[in-house]
Design a binder for these strands. Structure first.
Length: 258
DNA sequence: ATGACTTGCGCGGCAAGA
């Protein structure tokens, strides 16, 4: 089962890139972030035409997440823990896979800049909610994949120039500590289960020729429960999508599970 | 040294992103 995540920075812009990639890579499940539209505006027909079921949790102008699946799915929208939170950043699906089911969440974790400030406080509160919810999900002992744009640079090797991010909400010690707290519940970070290499990025800024200089950061992650990690067969970053004309700033990252 | 793009909204620039 091939499961991917991609922050598309508006689903309606350059839908052709997404459709091309879906045909080329043939993922079974795709987690999308920053669709930047309400559910009614999502280009559902074009994606369904490629054989996908579509579940969205949209919002006007900002945020918005979705899951595409070749298999039927049951869906929950929103991250538990704060009924007053109106930002669409979490959608979760259970998907039958052989004799078991796989649970997949599409996560758009808050950016948090500027830090310190209200936005950074919201980021840390959101991470606490994600930790609480994940603790409950892990009790199910299912194959679980938490995939998305975490807006977290886990380690110095995950940025071309870590010193440039020293005071940024994506790299502050408190951010990285929360991310470790999440992993320490018993999750495996898929890419780091397969390689210790530096220079592997999923985001390059639009500005200042960041792509041409490979000045990137690794902030899109797939976190696996033990039952999913046991099935891990490979990880790939589709960085060639960043080289296309009018690219998104993020590229897809994906896992293959038995 | 600084700023450097791109999006939605909606028609003038601003907020937000990372």
């Amino acid at each position: 089962m091939r499961i991917a995540t991609w922050n598309v920075n508006s689903i309606r812009q350059r839908l052709d890139h997404l459709l091309y990639w879906l045909k080329e890579v043939e993922p079974d499940v795709v987690c999308l972030q920053e669709i930047k539209c309400v559910d009614e505006a999502f280009p559902r027909q074009e994606i369904e035409a490629l054989g996908y079921n579509v579940a969205t949790h949209g919002q006007k102008t900002f945020n918005g997440v979705a899951i595409l699946s070749k298999f039927p799915m049951e869906v929950e929208r929103g991250l538990p823990g704060d009924d007053a939170d109106e930002q669409a950043r979490y959608i979760e699906a259970t998907i039958p896979h052989g004799a078991t089911i796989v649970r997949v969440a599409s996560i758009y974790l808050p950016n948090g800049n500027p830090a310190p400030g209200d936005k950074y406080d919201y980021k840390l509160r959101w991470m606490n909610r994600l930790i609480s919810h994940t603790r409950e999900l892990l009790k199910l002992e299912e194959p679980l994949v938490l995939a998305g744009d975490y807006n977290v640079i886990p380690d110095e090797r995950d940025a071309r120039d870590a010193s440039a991010w020293a005071t940024d909400a994506l790299f502050l010690p408190a951010t990285r500590a929360k991310f470790r707290e999440l992993l320490d519940l018993g999750l495996t970070e898929a890419l780091r289960a397969t390689t210790d290499a530096d220079g592997l990025y999923t985001f390059w800024d639009y500005q200042a020729g960041a792509w041409q200089r490979n000045n990137g950061i690794r902030i899109d992650h797939l976190l696996l429960s033990p039952q999913a990690a046991d099935r891990l067969r490979g990880v790939a970053i589709d960085s060639e999508m960043r080289a296309r004309e009018k690219p998104r700033d993020h590229v897809p990252i994906r896992v293959d599970l038995d």
